[in-house]
Amino acid sequence: MDQTIKQLEELYAQMGPKLLAYFRRHHAIAGTAEDLVQDTFVRAIRNFDRVRESISPRAYLFGIARNVCLDALRRHRPLEELTDERAPESNPPDDARVEQMRAVIAELPPQHREPLLLKLQQELSYDEIAEVLGVPVGTVRSRLHYAVASLRQALNPPMNESIAKHPL
């Protein structure tokens, strides 16, 4: 029992801030981000054996957090005023290319954008993203490749021209 509590505390210390940032990125539910983190851990505690047996507890928690987030967005009603409490912002983008990149990412299809953001924001591995989304690793890889290719095409001329000139 003590061992379980200790593991849980470590997991909370490690993952709590990341999950908080994850929820706060969704402005519609940013005001309830702390409640949603607690909800995530309550759900995790109910099946804590599965968290322990999971290949990556981090991915398992993000999977729960994703479901919690979806539930919260579904039942979201703008009853309470949202606080301006957001994840710590970096400097506003001076580079016009960063702004352009944001627009391109926003236009990606959700099934390509979500794994890309899990990779870039949460630094999850392909395996972990696959566990979070409940899809095969190959699907995650192909979606990420599609997303990066779309970004590259939007910002740069096609790279294949230079590669094609030098086949193996």
Binding site: H26, S90, R102, A106, Q121, V148, L151
Partner: peptide, 27 residues
């Protein structure tokens, strides 16, 4: 270098809180 640039730019863009980026789930 090109792909490295693209991913670095994407990381910078994703680090900025933006509702437009988070508006969609695969479900």
């Amino acid at each position: 270098a090109r792909i490295g640039d693209v991913i670095e730019l994407a990381q910078q863009a994703a680090a900025i809180p933006d509702e437009a980026l988070q508006s969609g789930f695969a479900v």
